[in-house]
């Protein structure tokens, strides 16, 4: 299945790119999903932001992490052929080099999705409302 990779504004671009290239070169059948969604705790605000208005901070952090995500993806696409060629010549060392790779295998396919965090859990909210209605109904019984 796909590998999920979260990009935040405090991640180092160089380590993100290095990991992504290594993953895509060594896992030819697995897609890599880079995203800026908050982690499971929903916390994209760091301790150093205390005292700032939360919504403004969240919006600014989102803007910088989206910009970083796009830059990281551009670098990955640019560096991928080089990384693949180098990996391939390592694998066939002493065998005349990696001449068997076709040119299209150097291209990465890219699929973009833009959404809103609030859109992610509409069902969970409905369920919790139903759960509360059910609790009230049982209390009344």
């Amino acid at each position: 299945g796909p590998h999920l990779m979260r990009v935040t504004d405090h991640h180092k671009m160089r380590s993100l790119v290095r990991f992504a290239l290594e993953f895509l070169v060594t896992n030819p059948a697995r897609p890599l999903v880079l995203h800026t969604m908050p982690n499971s705790r929903g916390n994209i605000i760091t301790e150093s932001d205390q005292g700032e208005p939360r919504t403004r901070i969240a919006r600014e952090k989102c803007t910088t992490s989206v910009a970083k995500l796009i830059s990281v993806v551009e670098i990955i696409k640019r560096e991928f052929p080089k990384a693949l060629r180098s990996h391939s010549s390592d694998a066939t060392a002493g065998d005349g080099g990696g001449t068997s790779l076709s040119s299209e295998s150097f291209n990465l396919h890219q699929y973009n999705e833009i959404g809103c965090k609030e859109d992610l859990f509409p069902l969970a909210e409905e369920e919790s409302n139903e759960d509360r209605a059910e609790r009230i109904r049982m209390l009344l019984e």
């Binding site: 796909p2 992504a20 895509l24 030819p28 059948a29 897609p31 890599l32 999903v33 880079l34 995203h35 800026t36 969604m37 908050p38 994209i44 969240a58 919006r59 989102c62 989206v66 995500l69 796009i70 993806v73 990955i76 696409k77 295998s105 990465l108 396919h109 890219q110 699929y111 973009n112 999705e113 833009i114 959404g115 809103c116 965090k117 609030e118």
Partner: peptide, 17 residues
Amino acid sequence: TPYMKITLSREPIPALA
């Protein structure tokens, strides 16, 4: 909060196209 998701793949993914 808006988010962005970019999938990179060596093989085409018709479901995402």
